[in-house]
Simulated scan of single mutants.
Amino acid sequence: MSTEYFVHKNSIVRKIWGKSDTIIFIFAGASAEFALNKAVDWLYFTGKLPKDPLGRLFSTVAYAKLIVFAERESAIKAISSMAAIHSQVETNRQAKIPDWAYRDVLFMLIVYSIKSFEVLERKLTIEEKREVFDVFNRVGLLMGLKGLPSNYEEWQSMRQEHLSQNMKYSYYTDDLFRQYRKHLGLVRYRILLEVQRTVIPVEVKEMLRIKNTMFVSNMGLSLYKLAKALNIDSILKAMVLPANYKEKVKALDNPPG
């Protein structure tokens, strides 16, 4: 009897989440947009986000990767565990995380999965984009999220609503970027900003006051692709990643299953 996986083995989603390069770009885009989310104060409630912003966002990305490569039953258990953790935070704070806030995080996984792969590899077909949507929408349904879109086209519309309604520049935005700089150091922080510039939408750039000049970003991206073609990208990553994250990033290139 063949093993049933949450995401089938030939899925484009496995290709996207099977490489540390793409996952780093997903992380970079989400870290920028998440700083603008109106519900970001929820992660400040536990104190974990300001204390270790990279680790907190990295754990979210790692959780998503685990689900993508897990057997169906294991993935469902992981999703249930994730829902229970959020439920406990709500109990401790005696308030409920808004439904739109849950959806926004899910939408970030969809949009930055697509955008990161397209920046680093190639354009996705509409069928592949729908497949990315379907995988993460199933995660949302299993978490019991309300108001999810029924298809990719509806998601596109809801995504635009999010960009116009659910973001604001706040104290938390400033603080998170200060923490990014503190934990990365100046050089790595500048690299993060350039990576963010390649994947975040215009709305996010405008709110973060990031100039829409792509010369430096495109030059860096071209150099990285050259390093990858020459098979020396691992040396480059070792130079730019904080020491305590090198092993975690390296492990992302070794998907289970």
Rank of each mutant, 00 (worst) to 15 (best):
E4T: 15
E4Y: 10
K9C: 04
S11C: 00
I12P: 02
R14C: 01
K19G: 02
K19I: 02
T22N: 10
A28Y: 03
G29H: 05
S31N: 11
S31Y: 05
V40Y: 06
D41L: 01
W42E: 12
Y44P: 13
Y44D: 10
K51A: 14
D52F: 01
P53F: 02
P53Y: 04
P53S: 05
L54M: 14
L57C: 07
T60G: 10
T60C: 04
A62W: 08
A64I: 07
K65W: 06
I67T: 07
I67L: 04
R72A: 12
A83Y: 01
A83L: 02
A84L: 05
I85L: 09
N92E: 13
P98H: 06
D99E: 14
D99G: 12
A101L: 08
M108N: 05
L109H: 08
S116R: 09
S116V: 10
F117P: 10
E118H: 06
V119M: 13
I126E: 15
E127A: 11
E131L: 04
K146P: 03
L148N: 10
Y152V: 00
M158Y: 05
Q160G: 14
K168D: 15
S170I: 01
D174R: 12
D174T: 13
R181V: 02
R181I: 03
K182M: 01
K182P: 03
G185M: 02
V187F: 15
L192A: 08
L192E: 04
E194L: 13
T198Q: 09
I200L: 08
I200H: 09
P201T: 08
E203W: 01
Y224L: 06
L226I: 07
I232V: 15
D233I: 02
A238N: 14
Y245D: 00
A251M: 11
A251W: 07
N254M: 09
P255I: 00
P256C: 10
